[in-house]
Design a protein around this nucleic acid. Structure first.
Length: 201
DNA sequence: CCGAGGGCTTGTT
DNA sequence: GAACAAGCCCTCG
């Protein structure tokens, strides 16, 4: 058996989704069985080791349970409505800095149908001028859909970039009920209001 | 009411 | 310590 750091105890799986084929990377260690990474259609690595394909018959019970649950979320197209408290059940959280954890935790609380700007998200999580650092974090968001980076837009209402393509970003937002101006900017009424009460981190 | 340009900013690698 | 990035804000024309 070839020892490869990344694929050690990790397994890949493709799942069909409304907007294309997703690639999921599962981690199955004793202490931390869960989703390691999710790639939007067209975003994942190309060469996947066949011996590391996810197998429900040989994985741990814990992982099998999570995989089944995620499968149902995708089939019922309810993944985008997953409440904040349930997101971290599925996702593996061991590898993040405090900044990343803080930002992703806040991001997880942005509900479907609302958007927030990069700067406002940074400020909200306690990093007042870190808009650009947030953008940088979004590029490597390991859990899109779970942690909805498609709901993070530019301060002037333009969409900003998106790993899965800006068209998918627009599509997702429209499906969620976000309103757009004639000039295709997100209308102010769809912004998350500051008054929302949040649990402390 | 745009749009382009420049300077400023952050956390990570 | 330097370079980077899915930003922001202000200034002009």
């Amino acid at each position: 058996m070839i020892h490869n750091n990344y694929w050690d105890e990790r397994y890949w799986q493709q799942k069909s989704w409304k907007y294309g084929e997703l690639l999921l990377i599962w981690q199955d260690t004793a202490g931390d069985a869960g989703l390691w990474q999710l790639f939007l259609p067209g975003c994942g690595p190309k060469n996947l080791p066949s011996e590391q394909q996810f197998n429900p018959l040989t994985c741990s019970d814990k992982l099998h349970w999570k995989e089944t649950a995620v499968d149902e979320l995708l089939n019922r197209d309810s993944i985008l409505k997953l409440p904040a408290a349930k997101k971290d059940i599925f996702c593996s959280w061991q590898r993040f800095t405090t900044f990343e954890t803080d930002i992703l935790a806040r991001l997880g609380q942005v509900p479907a149908g609302k958007v927030i700007s990069y700067g406002a998200l940074a400020n909200w999580a306690g990093y007042p001028r870190a808009a650009r650092a947030v953008g940088r974090l979004m590029t490597k968001n390991p859990f899109p859909l779970f942690y909805p980076c498609h709901r993070v837009i530019q301060a002037d209402g333009r969409l900003g970039n998106f790993g899965g393509g800006t068209e998918l970003k627009r599509q997702l937002l429209k499906t969620e009920g976000v309103l757009f101006s004639p000039a295709e900017k997100v209308s102010p009424s769809s912004r998350l209001k500051k008054s929302l009460k949040l649990p402390s981190l």
